[in-house]
């Protein structure tokens, strides 16, 4: 069940029409209300099925294309644990670039996720005399991969 309105679709189509570069399309769609709805109302398998159905269409209008890109953005930004090759984003001209942007976006999210690193107390004799508490072990040489 989808609750996308005519205005949602119009916003997607206009974003698709106005985007000058793949990156601006990715970030533009990320701001669209339709993408927020897709992310909140569909789970990953549903989005995957939706994406495959849309991109299988022979006739690709702006509404279809922008919706396909919107579902791709929803998929890529909803679930960062998606395995490589799980979904064929190359069905879209800029699909592979979208994967790249999402990877870099999710990487920065993981690096700033401090919940995985418990606070660490370090004793020091230098001034100031109070102990310094670091938020986590700052060892980011081998950050986790998102996708």
């Amino acid at each position: 069940m989808t609750t996308l309105t005519r205005n949602d679709l119009k916003e997607l189509a206009q974003t698709y029409m106005l985007a000058n570069t793949p990156r601006s399309l990715f970030w533009g769609l990320l701001q669209c209300s339709a993408v927020h709805k897709l992310k909140s109302e569909y789970n990953k398998p549903e989005l995957k099925t939706y994406f495959e159905t849309i991109t299988a269409k022979a006739r690709r209008s702006e509404y279809v294309m922008s919706l396909a890109y919107a579902v791709a953005v929803a998929l890529l930004t909803k679930d960062i644990s998606m395995e490589e090759g799980e979904i064929d984003f190359s069905r879209l001209d800029w699909g592979e670039q979208f994967q790249d942007y999402a990877y870099h976006t999710s990487s920065s999210v993981i690096i700033t996720d401090i919940s995985a690193f418990p606070p660490q107390k370090i004793e020091t004799s230098s001034t100031p005399t109070s102990n310094i508490v670091l938020p986590y072990d700052v060892n980011l040489n081998n950050p986790k991969k998102g996708i």
């Binding site: 985007a19 000058n20 570069t21 990156r23 601006s24 970030w27």
Partner: peptide, 9 residues
């Protein structure tokens, strides 16, 4: 430029 520094136009 976008807020992230991408030349979007």
């Amino acid at each position: 430029f976008s807020a992230e520094g991408d030349p979007n136009h």
